[in-house]
């Protein structure tokens, strides 16, 4: 039982990481209907910038959490500017072009960001200095660290903040209006370009948080880390219903738990025929199954057949 509990804890923490990145995908998708393939790379840049600051300060007498916070203070505006720039340069000119065109520029932006990071920070793994407490607590035989608890809480907090922003503020109303119908929203006095820019900026600020969190949690960052993380997060967003904030959270948590339980129990489930090497197969299988029965994800709105 303690093993099962441990797997669930593992899954929830991993899922919170996915969810945080997935929120960025889903925000942009909700407004523009665009898969922002470069979001994973923005997360990577966030991690890299934060780590550069943190590593520069880690020798000083400042307490650990302050250094980490300072790293975030630099990484966040950097990512926000980056997100704004990406939208301005690579997506805005293509807003009325074929949708796949923006997908290709997104891939191009990914490649450019990856290789720029490689040139700036080098090809090595960059390590996170041991500033954060990682002592495990044992609850009913299962281990959980302060950092893990913090990650789950932070993801939940950001989620609540975003829901408040989207559903309770003027800005959020404008966002929702733009998502519903950009043209009509424009006619109603919403400055669509500003709204879209803000969406990208908020999404990228989240990416900076996610990047810092991922690199702090796993202890390292690399210029290539954005790709697989982005892929997983994107899968999570689709699982939950892309475009839906709650869906991203649910999808992320579910994907994390599915992966954990998959890796942990797939051997027993298949009588030892399949092992943890089929962990991703298991995750994708669940995703496909969900989409076959709910073609727009768990919380996604059902898109009616066009009339």
């Amino acid at each position: 039982m303690d093993i099962f509990l441990q797997q669930i804890i593992n899954g929830i923490v991993l899922g919170s990481v996915y969810a945080l990145v997935a929120l960025g995908y889903t925000m942009v998708y909700g407004i523009l209907g665009l898969i922002n393939f470069a979001h994973g790379e923005v997360v990577m840049i966030g991690a890299m910038v934060a780590l550069a600051v943190i590593n520069a300060l880690s020798g000083t007498a400042l307490p650990g959490p302050v250094i980490v916070l300072l790293g975030l203070m630099v990484a966040m505006p950097t990512c926000m500017a980056l997100g704004y720039g990406i939208e301005r340069i690579a997506y805005r000119p293509l807003r009325h072009a074929p949708r796949l065109a923006a997908l290709i520029t997104a891939i191009g932006v990914s490649i450019v960001l990856q290789n720029s990071a490689m040139i700036i920070w080098g090809r090595q793994y960059i390590t996170f200095p041991p500033l954060l407490p990682s002592k495990p607590h044992f609850v009913a035989g299962a281990a959980i660290s302060d950092l893990q608890i913090f990650i789950v809480l932070l993801a939940a907090l950001i989620m609540v903040g975003l829901l408040f922003l989207v559903h309770r503020t003027r800005l959020g109303r404008a966002m929702r209006a733009t998502a519903q119908n950009a043209e009509v929203a424009g006619l109603m006095g919403v400055n669509i370009n500003t709204i879209i820019s803000i969406t990208f900026i908020v999404g990228s600020a989240l990416a900076a948080v996610a990047g810092l969190m991922v690199s702090g949690y796993y202890g390292l960052a690399h210029y290539y880390m954005g790709f697989s993380l982005g892929l997983k997060a994107f899968t999570a967003a689709v699982l939950g219903g892309i475009g839906n904030l709650g869906g991203a959270m649910l999808g992320g948590l579910l994907l994390g738990i599915i992966e954990s339980l998959g890796a942990g129990y797939i051997g027993q489930l298949t009588g030892g025929f399949l092992g943890s090497n089929y962990q991703d197969v298991f995750a994708f299988f669940v995703l496909i199954l969900v989409l076959v029965f709910r073609p727009s994800g768990l919380l996604g709105e059902r898109i009616a057949e066009r009339a």
């Binding site: 093993i3 441990q6 797997q7 923490v13 954990s260 890796a263 942990g264 051997g267 962990q279």
Partner: peptide, 18 residues
């Protein structure tokens, strides 16, 4: 147990191993 050369999270397989 198995992982991939891109993975960073091994808690699931390590829990099984434990």
């Amino acid at each position: 147990e198995y992982t991939t050369d891109r993975a960073t999270d091994f808690l699931a397989i390590l829990t099984t191993i434990k």
